[in-house]
Design a protein around this nucleic acid. Structure first.
Length: 934
RNA sequence: GCCCGAGUGGUGGAAUUGGUAGACACGUUGGACUUAAAAUCCAAUGACCAUUGCGGUCGUGCGGGUUCAAGUCCCGCCUCGGGUACCA
């Protein structure tokens, strides 16, 4: 009996837990290191092999850092609110808390089995009142804050009220809704309700009537990042646009800082790029187009404001388009066009998001009968409405430049509107736009037919145009963001209640000492008969003074936006986290998780953190210094091929000879793509009498890489693998699979090799009789070389997160020590420490067997000695005309000239030099020799 | 459509800075041990040609280029994966 993973792993898991080996201290002389995994939602299905991939990588890093002398914070907890438990509650009546508790238990058991070095004393759950107290608390701070553009940070709303009281809002530069100007006297004359309504336009958490993504099937509103291609991310249900009164977070206030902050963090470029796209900054200008015939109209005389990134093309604006929802549509439409415009608005309104997105190519629109005046040409241009202009971006109105914008071009062609060229490609003659097949959208070329802009390059023209617009008082330079404020209300039960009550219809925050506001019990988890959210079913859902409480709950991202801060000080009853704890831990040094959170969690957390930073609570502006994406593990499905209409199955390579149908077969019954036919017969009654056409006595299955899912019978559950091979093998194997950030198929076929490696490693320490075979003999040079080379390689690989090559370096090391028949303490002791981050149970067992007490977790990492890494000789590859011909071993310190001489006089060289002239000899010491002959 | 990323043996992958392509492992084949199997060990394993030996030719998605030298750099394509989708 050799390496017994079952016993060893249980033993050390117990030891770590009893000794609290991974407890992180908030006060320490050691430097800190914060390693974080993305907050998991404990699903009922438990873990599959894809989930722990990132956890294993971060655990290796955390354990490595402990050996390096760091005080490591490596916490874990649960994003416990979520739709699945609530859907289950609706179906069965089981309280989501019960389901969640059950799932967490299972999750925890699975995590424990893998031997992670989490500090479980710091566990948090978003659904725990002690935790969500601070989620609610932060919401109140957001409610009580506004964004001051002058200071470029969030400030207390009381400061804003003071400004209003002394000078109105004239000098206030805030990120806010559009608000009329008022002075101090007017402010003071407002009623309490009017003042509260005004403040609502400034608050960072605000209530407003907005167009939201309404998902009828889920019965709730969704944030933009929770909608994918017009369908809900969870469940894939249709989403409609609906006007509703909702809480939102004014995250747009942070748009520029979110963008700037990306320059300071060490994240994958692709992830940064995704965030940049999502934030979508564009520079351009606001321009006012006066309406023809409305000069005397007080309201309309200012004109329609449009946003454009191409103010240089203003001379080419031949019509205007408003979004169907634009508030002026009904005001400017002429009587003779009213019916058609009304019909179009109605049609556009009822179109689902999905339809609108899939029918992008379809050009629709309607003329309002109104005309605007191009401010530069003075020409009258028609004003249309069309749903290709979005109400939610810019001002919901555009100047159409069909010559240089493909959408405007398509629209102009369809409705036969004039197309004018104002940019000419360098060196090309202006062409008749009637003959164009497409618009010329590139921001390159020379301005033509554009008055004062003629002859300028596009980039200069943009600048010049803005300057002129500002001089004329009809426009101004402007920056727009695509990012929208985050809708924060959910019409669901299982989430944080808002700490808000209503007095005379106006929302007010609860006093902080009444937090947490606990989620009430309800009889059913469905909306009320009158369509109110489930929380409205609760009895006495009112404050102690009898005011009604908010019945919406917060979205999933509420609790997950600041969890990394709470880990710093998870049991603090008086504060979110103490200043001390935050000063010490600061922010996350290494965050590992999937890139699916790019537009959601990773934006929200950054805003949350920046807000707390503005408040002086968090000491770092960015929450996650370094971030690594772990790739997804895809399933590897196996197939059998049934001859159509029979119960006969033909082996993979013979299937072409028949008319077959491929069927998924459970990967449990397949080993190395060979089917266990007996197991298959027992799998399902209809296969009981199955017959097989074999090739060389075996039934070979086909395979395909697809998503891991139950229906494809390709789900690999880690529990079975741990039972069979142990957690250390699983850890090593998941790392061995390939680079951490790459997607890769799960393929069980290689796991045996890793298991074999661990047993080989074991046998360096123990003989066949399980007796320690380690000796105190001094190591020879060759052995020293092996271990020192390995120390350097393993360290380099961990530092650059190349865990797969790390595993192979261990394999090489063990193979070489085996060859040297090395059983020396001097070598095997450091090796045990080296492998601890990867295979911690085994390493602890070896360490103990070597006579050490007190565990291996904090033992110093071995240092390599440069003297063992230097080789005396180097084997030069010698190439002729770039082709490798022979190799020559030479002293490593030989000079280039000597090397050249040695190579040219080498016996093997004659063959390649004969009858040729040497044109050039390239010698790169300790690299290569290349001889050019001709 | 636009923006990223990736294409290397039968398979997962390695090659960190332009310098020996295919490390390590799986699989396959042959062999040793064994009554047998498992386990273990040894050898071969990119393709093609030559095999009596030395060996040779081709080869990192495709086509060009730069260089003494390209998987790696540049230009143009193809395929796959991800994000986004009328964002003016």
């Amino acid at each position: 009996m050799a390496y017994n993973h079952r016993e060893i792993e249980k033993k050390w898991q117990k030891y770590w837990s009893e000794h609290k080996s991974f407890k992180a201290e908030n006060h320490s002389n050691k430097p800190k290191f914060y390693v974080l995994d993305m907050f998991p939602y404990p699903s009922g299905a438990g873990l599959h092999v894809g989930h722990p991939l990132g956890y294993i990588a971060s655990d290796i890093y955390a354990r490595y850092k402990r050996h390096q002398g760091f005080n490591v914070l490596h916490p874990m907890g649960y994003d416990a609110y979520g739709l699945p438990a609530e859907q289950y509650a609706i179906q069965t009546g089981t309280h989501p808390e019960i389901t969640t508790e059950k799932n967490i238990k299972r999750y925890r058991k699975q995590l424990d089995q893998i031997g992670f070095s989490f500090d479980w004393d710091r566990e948090v759950r978003t659904s725990d009142p002690d935790y969500y107290k601070w989620t609610q608390w932060t919401f109140i701070q957001l409610f009580n804050s506004w964004y001051n553009r002058d200071a470029d940070k969030a400030e207390l709303i009381t400061g804003l009220i003071e400004k209003f009281e002394t000078s109105g809002n004239g000098d206030v530069h805030a990120v806010c809704d559009e608000t009329p100007a008022f002075d101090a006297a007017q402010w003071k004359q407002m009623t309490e309700i009017e003042q509260q309504e005004m403040l609502m336009h400034y608050r960072l958490a605000y209530l407003s009537e907005t167009l939201v993504n309404w998902c009828p099937a889920l019965g709730t509103v969704l944030a933009n990042d929770e909608v994918k291609e017009g369908l809900s991310e969870r469940g894939g249900y249709p989403v409609e646009r609906k006007l509703m009164k909702q809480w939102s977070l004014r995250i747009t206030a942070y748009a520029q800082r979110l963008l700037d902050g990306l320059e300071t963090v060490d994240w994958p470029d692709s992830l940064k790029e995704m965030q940049r796209n999502w934030i979508g900054r564009s520079e351009g200008a606001s321009v006012w187009f006066k309406l023809d015939g409305h000069a005397d109209d007080k309201e309309l005389s200012e004109g329609i404001e449009v946003f454009t990134t191409r103010p240089d093309t203003l001379f080419g604006a031949t019509f205007m388009v408003l979004a169907p929802e634009h508030e002026w549509v009904s005001k400017i439409t002429t009587p003779e066009h009213k019916d058609k415009v009304d019909a179009y608005v109605q049609w556009a309104k009822n179109r689902s998001e999905r339809e609108r997105m899939t029918e992008v190519k379809r050009v629709t629109g309607e003329f309002t009968g109104a005309y605007a005046v191009n401010p530069l040409t003075g020409n009258k241009i028609p004003v249309w409405i069309a749903d290709y202009v979005l109400a939610g971006y810019g001002t919901g109105a555009i100047m159409a430049v069909p010559g240089h914008d493909s959408r405007d071009f398509a629209f102009a062609r369809h409705f036969k509107l004039p197309i004018l060229q104002v940019v000419s490609q360098e060196g090309a003659e202006p062409a008749d736009t009637d003959s164009w097949e497409d618009s010329y959208d590139a921001k390159e070329g020379v301005m033509i037919q554009s008055g004062f802009l003629n002859g300028l390059q596009v980039k200069e023209a943009i600048h010049t145009a803005i300057v002129r617009l500002e001089e004329m008082g009809i426009g101004t330079g402007k920056i727009n963001f695509r990012l929208r404020d985050a809708i924060f209300s959910r019409q669901r039960y299982w989430g944080e209640p808002f700490p808000i009550y209503y007095k005379n219809g106006m929302p007010y925050p609860l006093p902080e000492d009444e937090l947490p506001l606990r989620l009430p019990e309800v009889d059913k988890y469905l909306p009320t008969e009158t369509g109110e959210p489930p929380v409205a079913r609760a009895k006495n859902w009112v404050t102690k003074d009898g005011y009604p409480l908010e019945t919406n709950t917060m979205p999933g991202f509420a609790g997950s936006s600041g969890y990394y801060l709470r880990y710093m000080d998870p049991h603090n009853d008086n504060e979110y986290f103490s200043k001390d704890a935050n000063q010490y831990w600061r922010n996350v040094d290494l965050y590992i998780g999937g890139d699916e959170h790019a537009a959601g969690h990773l934006i929200y957390s950054r805003v949350w953190n920046k807000f707390l930073y503005d408040n002086g609570l968090a000491c770092e502006d960015e929450p996650f210094k370094k971030l690594i994406n772990q790739g997804k593990i895809q399933g590897r499905s196996n197939f059998v091929y049934r001859i159509t209409g029979t119960n006969k199955f033909v082996s993979y390579n013979l299937r072409k000879e028949y008319n077959t149908q491929a069927l998924h077969v459970d990967i449990e019954m397949v080993s190395n793509d060979v089917l266990d036919t007996e197991a298959f017969k027992k799998w399902r009654p209809e296969f009981k009498d199955a017959e097989f056409i074999l090739e060389d006595g075996k039934y070979h299955c086909g395979y395909e890489v697809e998503k891991m899912s139950k229906s494809k019978h390709n789900v690999q559950n880690p529990d079975d693998l741990i039972e069979k091979y142990g957690a250390d093998t699983l850890r090593l194997y998941e790392m061995f699979l390939g680079p951490i950030d790459q997607d890769k198929p799960w393929d069980i076929n290689g796991i045996e090799g890793v298991y074999r490696f661990l047993r080989k490693l074991w046998r360096l320490y123990f003989d066949e009789n399980d007796q320690l075979s380690v000796t105190d003999e001094p190591a020879i040079e060759a052995e020293q070389k092996v271990i020192h080379k390995t120390i350097k390689k393993i360290q380099d690989d961990i530092e650059r997160f190349s865990f797969n090559t790390g595993v192979s370096a261990f394999m090489i090391c063990v193979n070489e020590l085996n060859e040297l028949n090395c059983h020396k303490r001097e070598i095997l002791e450091p090796l045990a420490i080296l492998i601890e981050p990867y295979a911690p149970h085994l390493a602890e067992e070896l360490w103990e067997s070597l006579g050490h007490k007190g565990g291996l977790v904090n033992v110093d990492y071995p240092e390599y000695d440069q003297k063992y890494l230097q080789e005396d000789t180097f084997t030069y590859p010698v190439s002729f005309n770039g082709k490798l011909r022979f190799k020559l071993e030479l002293p490593a310190d030989m000079s280039a000239a000597e090397i050249e001489k040695a190579v040219l006089s080498a016996e093997e060289a004659n063959r390649w030099l004969e009858g040729k002239t040497i044109r050039k000899v390239i010698v790169v010491p300790k690299r290569i020799v290349n001889i050019v002959v001709g």
